[in-house]
Design a protein around this nucleic acid. Structure first.
Lengths: 188, 188
DNA sequence: ACGTGATTACTCGCGTTTGACTATATGTGA
DNA sequence: TCACATATAGTCAAACGCGAGTAATCACGT
């Protein structure tokens, strides 16, 4: 919920005054972007809104050569207050957004067992790749992780593993799910 | 991704022509809303947009007494095409949105071990309640479930269980995470 | 006859997100 | 030195999401 605002406030609170692009770069360096995934279009809009609300304020604007002007923002006291509020809210929020595949499942009545199996196996493959990539990321980053950040990695790994486990369960169940359907009529 | 559109198209494809409110009621009855969670404010906007695009079209408008007029929509051929596209897309999409708690974790440097433990334990409690509620829902609905719907329930249950397992892991690790911090100095 | 709470059906306005786009500067290799 | 990718820094319109509101009707007891 409101991850963009939390991200902006956190960046400015921990990194000092910065302009938009700088926020993005810093998030790459310190891996914040792994957990936030804020697109540029969202960022600049949020910066302007938040400045107009007074949770952040512009320090000054610069221009190097003829490149677009950049505006440097700093967090205000009101911003620090909202920062803590948003952090605590995120810490309290346990809502689990329903996976869109569950919705798709309702509409798969016209697919054959083979088509479903193929789709699920492809998903499983992608998840396995995603898992491998996160594991790589984890081992690479491990020496630099501080505070509670390692728990975030474990969280992500466990979630992907659970996802894979469900896919295995589905692959196991598929024959049974299709057994009760008319394919050619067992014994008419 | 675009769950609202998939939801609208699926409703009209499987339920025949309907007006907005009818779509919501039908989604309640057949449990589609469990997997979509589309708010009224989103629904009517989507209906108008989609009508203007031609993926759905208005059949007629009615008015009972002096109540708000209701517009009955039907899916078009273009709509059926987009429906399959969106369904297949949802079926292919394995992206796992990062949990906002992982972002919050980065900003918890000022919290004590006790504060963190309390926060995580509260989360765990809420998740346990959520799990119980889904299990109830599952056993209640079990006799009426058709097609691949049961797999959706198992999916949700597994995800919540994984979430709980992570919280248990965190509770186990917390002492170690805080061991390396200055609380009073072990033996100076 | 009358309040009152639920239901019906949708509107409104604002916040937010997104993808595509702009436009300059800086390598980098042939 | 020319071409082409990449980095820098941000804009914009349109789509999207949502809480709150509206305004009538209906159900129900009292």
């Amino acid at each position: 919920m409101n991850a963009t605002r939390l991200f902006v406030l956190g960046s400015l609170a921990n990194g000092g005054p910065m302009h938009g692009h700088q926020i993005r770069l810093a998030a790459q360096v310190d891996r914040t972007e792994l957990w936030a995934d804020v697109k540029p279009g969202s960022l600049y809009g949020a910066l302007r809104r938040m400045a107009s609300e007074g949770v952040i304020e512009t320090v000054r604007t610069e221009q190097k050569g003829n490149r677009p002007e950049r505006t440097i923002y700093r967090i205000t006291e009101a911003g620090r207050a909202e920062f803590k509020m948003l952090r605590d809210k995120a810490l309290r929020d346990t809502r689990i957004a329903p996976d869109s595949v569950n919705l798709a499942l309702l509409y798969c009545g016209d697919l054959s067992e083979e088509q479903m199996r193929a789709a699920i196996e492809l998903r499983r493959q992608n998840l396995a790749a995603e898992l491998a990539s996160w594991e790589q990321l984890h081992t690479d980053a491990a020496p630099w992780l501080t505070g509670l950040e390692p728990l975030g990695f474990e969280h992500q790994l466990m979630r992907i593993k659970a996802e894979i486990a469900w896919h295995d369960l589905v692959l196991d169940r598929l024959p049974k799910m299709f057994a009760g359907r008319d394919g050619a009529g067992e014994q008419a």
